[in-house]
Every structure is written in structure tokens, then in C-alpha cells.
Design a protein around this nucleic acid. Structure first.
Lengths: 228, 228
DNA sequence: CAGGTGAATTAACATCGTTCACAAAATTAA
DNA sequence: TTAATTTTGTGAACGATGTTAATTCACCTG
């Protein structure tokens, strides 16, 4: 316990008793994200959460973008891949399933990992497990990367769609201009679209979509593994 | 030709000779996007492009988000799907190929259509062509939606990844914290990751990845069509 | 010519990321 | 203990951006 000669009780709102840290900042950002959503996460709110000015954060973090990277990795912590090591298909389904579940569990997390996911210490094990399963499918090192890319793209993209549908997150436009745009058109030219309109209006069953996508992916991998 | 009594020559920079229109605004936005990138597109720059104040745009457009939706649809105009109507696989490959090519051709367009793509008059024919091809695969109306969702997700996601790699667009963080994060870890725990590190550093062959993904998707559709 | 409709302007507000000089605390050296 | 130095957070500001409100001005109608 450090010995403070001055201003031990009721510090004059000048300095913190303890130093900041990058970890503390990330945790504060995660707290705000979980409590108020991604839109509420900004330098000033994080600072306020820590009783600190926004500018102070820049001693530990280079930019908002880097903080987002770190935040994403932090939110994936503990998403331990269950790798039985038996059938690679089971493993791949298990890993991507856990990955997807985590993406859906952390509010607004899909907003962060939109374009490119940063590979931090918490994402690395997931990546390793995925690549390991793919490697055991019979694909060689050269053939593994495309399926991996496709797989991650699918998991993230679908999770984002589901998050939007569930209202967990915001997308660009709040109101869907679908109806307007569709009905404004001469629908006669789009028979299939019109025929499916009622089904398109119904919320997507993302569990089924996920199952289909993974089945397709696995079928594609098997086919490629045979050729290679 | 309208008859202007006053200020026909060298108008006092007060009023425009012709009214604005939503279409004109979208075209101006597209011009800026193509010339200076997505980051340069904002209400003020669009106004400047039209010789108009930023606030004037709000008479024709509800918000920046809606403008993005309209802009995306506009950028997809003329991406006519080549539907031979023979084999649904060929058609699907042809449509998604044209779709992907357009996404890569328009600078930064993948930034706009990140989360959910808005269905405007120019996107509708693409959607129709896709759904039509899927319908002809033997899937019934209930089975068509998941493959469609997967398909679009893949096309857009991969195009975004490729745009990032090509430097056509920006992602969140400019610098890749990959190396830092990876080397900081104890790499002994990630044998597959380490084994593939050199290959992960090499730029992805997105044509190959696209071909693989579409093959896998088609394989998945065929499998599902048999069951249904 | 008078009055009304509507389009665009001007001016501002709020928010956000970020920088910079400075003060205060913590750490080190004497 | 005291002085010098490094580090940490503050306060104030800048520039960009989306958006709103009141106002001005052109055009059309009667």
C-alpha cells in the first residue's frame, strides 16, 4: 500500500491515485459498449468512465481505430475453441459455432469487425483451431487459405446480418427503404422477387442459414481435398 | 429555355439558375467518390460540387445514411446480369462474377454496402437474376433464401477484403498490428498458424478464393436440392 | 402589383477525434 | 532530505462532420 503524504482523502480532483493502463481503458470501453452500445463508445465517454480526460487516453492508445482493434480482441477473450480432434468437420462446426455465438453475445461487436479482423492474442487461438481443422481435412498448406478466408467471412457476415435483424446493432439507415424501392418499380419484371416477397419479409432463420453455409463450405472443402 | 430578367449573366452567387434534384445530388456524390474516395464524400463537399450549401441537400435527402443507400444503388446501375438461362450454375457464376467485378470497379463502394445492402431499382435486377438461378437449381421457395443470403454475403465480403488488400479503400486501422500481436505471443501454442505464417503474409489470390467459394456454394446447393 | 410558396442561404449547435503547451505528480539522482 | 528529471494527466483549443433553425430571395399566381 503506497504511502501518500498529501491529498490522500478527497483528492482535489487533480490526479488519480493509480495510473491508467491500456488494459483498463479497453475494459472501460467494453463496459460502455455492453451497457450503452457502440455509438456511446468514444474517447470522452471512456475517459469519463475512468474519471479522466479524453486526451489522457492517447498516452496508452495510438488512435481510436487501434482501440477498436484492441476492443474486438478483448471481447473475444475466453471464446475457447472446443477441438475434440476427431472429425475435422465436427471441429470446424464447433469452432465456428462458438465464434458465431460469441459475436452474437457481445452487443454491437459486429460493428467493429466489419472489414478486417485484427489478430490479437484472443483471436489467435480461434484462428489456430480453424486452420488446424482445415488442415486435417486433407487440404495442403496451399489449399487451406481460401477456405479459411471464406469461412471467417461467412461467420462474421452472417453474424452481422443477424445482429442487424435482431436489433442488437444499428446499420447505416434505420428505416428500410426496401418496400418503397420495390413497389416503386414495375414489379412485373421481377417475377422471382415478387414470388419470394412474402418470404423475404419474414425474418431470416439464421440458425438454418448458418447450418446451410457451413454444410456448403464443408462440401466445397471435401471436393477440393479430393482434387488436391 | 426560361426567360430570366435579372442576373442572367454572372449571377450574384445568390441563387442557382436550375433547381437541385435528388438525382443530381447522387451523381455529385458518385463523382466525388470516384475522384477522391469515400472519405471525401460529405454533405459539404457534395454541396460544393454543385455550387450549393450543404444544408440545401436536406430538401432532397433525409440524411447522410439515406444518401449512402441511394449512392450504392446508383453505383450498381448498369451491372446487367448475363442470364443465359441454360445451366443455373453458369448463370449464378456469371451474375455473381459481374456483381463482384462491379464492386471492385467502383472505388470504395464496399465501404458503403458493409452491413446490409439496400435494394434499390438498380440492385433489384441483380437480386432477381440471382434468385431466379437459385430457383432453377431445384430448390423450392423455402430453400432458396439461405443460399441467397450466403451468396450475397460471400460476394460482398470477399470484394471488401480484396478492396482492402488492393488499397482501393481504407479499413479501420491503417497499420496492421498482426505481426506485433503474433510475435508477442508464445507462438509455440499455434503450430498451424506459425506454419502458415509465410503464406498468410502473401497477398491472397482473390480470384481463386472467389472460385472456391462459389464452387462450395454450388456444391451446397446441389446437396440441399437433392434432399428437398 | 401584392402576396404566397418554396428553394437555398446564413448561422449556428452538437459531437467527435486529435493535438499541444503546461502543470502536477512520481521517480530518480545527488 | 533535497534537487533534477521523467512521466502522467489537464485544459483549451482546432478542424471536420451531420444536422437544424431562422432568414432571404426568386418565382408563380391572383
Amino acid at each position: 500500500m503506497p504511502h501518500l503524504h498529501r491529498s490522500q482523502i478527497a483528492p482535489p480532483a487533480r490526479r488519480r491515485r493509480t495510473f491508467l493502463s491500456r488494459e483498463e481503458i479497453i475494459v472501460a470501453a467494453a463496459t460502455i459498449l455492453n451497457r450503452d452500445g457502440y455509438d456511446a463508445v468514444n474517447m470522452r465517454s471512456i475517459g469519463a468512465e475512468l474519471g479522466v480526460q479524453a486526451a489522457a487516453l492517447y498516452r496508452y492508445v495510438a488512435s481510436r481505430e487501434q482501440l477498436d482493434d484492441l476492443l474486438f480482441d478483448h471481447l473475444m477473450a475466453g471464446c475457447t475453441p472446443v477441438v475434440a480432434g476427431r472429425d475435422w468437420r465436427e471441429d470446424l462446426r464447433s469452432i465456428t459455432g462458438a465464434w458465431r455465438a460469441r459475436l452474437l453475445d457481445r452487443r454491437d461487436i459486429t460493428r467493429i469487425a466489419l472489414g478486417q479482423i485484427s489478430i490479437g492474442p484472443n483471436v489467435a487461438p480461434l484462428m489456430e483451431a480453424c486452420l488446424s481443422a482445415l488442415r486435417r481435412s486433407g487440404l495442403n498448406d496451399d489449399g487451406v487459405l481460401d477456405p479459411y478466408e471464406t469461412c471467417i467471412l461467412f461467420v462474421h457476415g452472417l453474424a452481422r446480418s443477424e445482429a442487424i435483424q435482431r436489433g442488437l446493432t444499428k446499420r447505416g439507415g434505420d428505416a428500410q427503404p426496401r418496400d418503397e424501392a420495390l413497389e416503386a418499380e414495375n414489379c412485373g419484371s421481377y417475377p422471382t422477387l415478387v414470388a419470394l416477397a412474402s418470404r423475404l419479409a419474414v425474418p431470416t432463420d439464421f440458425d438454418a442459414a448458418f447450418a446451410f453455409g457451413m454444410d456448403a463450405l464443408i462440401a466445397g472443402i471435401e471436393r477440393r481435398a479430393l482434387i488436391v
